[in-house]
Simulated scan of single mutants.
Amino acid sequence: MMPIGEGLRTQVVQLQGSESLYRCQLTVFAYDTPQVDAAYDAAYGCLSSAERAYCDRLKVRKRALEFTFGRYVAKEAARAAADGALARESFEIRQGLFNQPILVCPDGRDLEVSIAHSNGVAMALVHPRACPLGIDLEVLDGRTLSTMTEHLTEHESALMDRHPVASDRSYLPAVIWTAKESLSKVFKSGLLVPFDLFEVQSISTRSEVMTSAFRSFSHYVAASARVGDFVASIAYPKMTDLRTESGAPFPSLALPGSSQAG
């Protein structure tokens, strides 16, 4: 098994609409390990010539790691979406006008990808174009949470103060932030528009999954969960029901600090 095989996890995420079932593939890889150099070499080998050229121009190692492993997990998710019939190397992740990732499939499959990375973890969700989705991931540390808290709107601050579970309030800024950023990726805007545009209107909690509704985008919601030292969010159409293949309300992510990470 090549070095990157350790710690790589891919699973099915399903969204049930009124008439259609949309199958997506979510891949996560925690690469901040003593084997990171060997894993990087393996992931770099899966890049296209254009992707390698871009990566080689990156002067900061952290950025090169994020780019390379982000592309790798995206290609692994795409390979899974193709039922393993296509090699990772046959996919390419190009950059759009706003630097959004554009998945190019060798057989012309109508798929899109959303990529996130934080503190040594890369995550990608490949989904049918017909069902727009976005993901985000953030580590829970004091500095990051402080920055997120500073960017809360007045309404979001009030939501946090009124949240019924006191123990959740410590990481609620990360829930709100990742919910908003995952929605921004649905619209391919990222942080190029005022973040307040994606203001969270309400938050409900069920089975340790928080669901955010948006003031200006009532046709979307975001599911968020704390997993170890991280918070992850998936923004998806409100008219669908998000479940894993086993029926769980949120994917099982083996992230650092979680019991699943071992």
Rank of each mutant, 00 (worst) to 15 (best):
M1E: 06
D41P: 11
E154C: 12
R143Y: 03
P194S: 00
R162Q: 15
A39P: 03
L152Q: 12
F217Y: 15
A122Y: 09
A30C: 13
A254M: 10
I203D: 02
V113W: 00
L255Y: 01
G45Q: 05
L103M: 00
G142P: 02
T27H: 00
A85Y: 04
A248L: 08
V221G: 00
L21N: 05
K59A: 08
A80S: 11
A78K: 03
S182F: 04
K180E: 02
G257S: 08
Q201H: 14
L242F: 07
E19P: 07
A222S: 15
A78D: 04
V227T: 09
V13Y: 01
F187E: 10
D196Q: 14
S202P: 05
S146L: 14
L197K: 09
A235Y: 00
F98N: 12
L26M: 08
P164M: 11
L47H: 00
A77E: 01
D32N: 13
E76H: 14
F195W: 06
M2Q: 15
A225N: 03
K238F: 07
P128F: 02
P173D: 07
L145Y: 05
R143K: 12
Y72N: 09
L253K: 03
A174S: 14
Q95C: 11
V126I: 10
A87W: 12
A124V: 03
S252C: 11
F230E: 02
R169I: 01
H155T: 07
V209I: 07
M2E: 15
D110V: 09
E138H: 05
R206S: 13
L183S: 04
E199Q: 12
M2L: 15
S118G: 00
S48G: 15
A43S: 05
L26V: 01
Y54H: 15
A130K: 06
L103V: 04
E208C: 11
F67L: 12
F230S: 03
D196R: 13
E89R: 14
A50Q: 15
E76Q: 15
F230P: 00
L8A: 07
V28K: 05
Y40P: 04
F217T: 08
P101V: 01
C46I: 07
S48N: 14
F214H: 07
G257Q: 05
T149H: 12
M160Q: 07
R206L: 13
I4K: 04
T149F: 11
Y54E: 11
L172Q: 02
Q16E: 14
I93L: 13
Y72M: 09
L125Q: 01
A43I: 04
P128T: 04
K59E: 09
V36K: 13
D56F: 06
F214E: 03
L21E: 08
V104T: 14
D196N: 13
Q95F: 10
A78H: 00
R129E: 08
S167V: 15
E245V: 09
T211F: 02
L8M: 14
A39H: 03
M123Y: 00
V104Q: 12
S252H: 08
A64L: 08
A116C: 09
S216Y: 10
G70I: 04
D241W: 09
S212R: 05
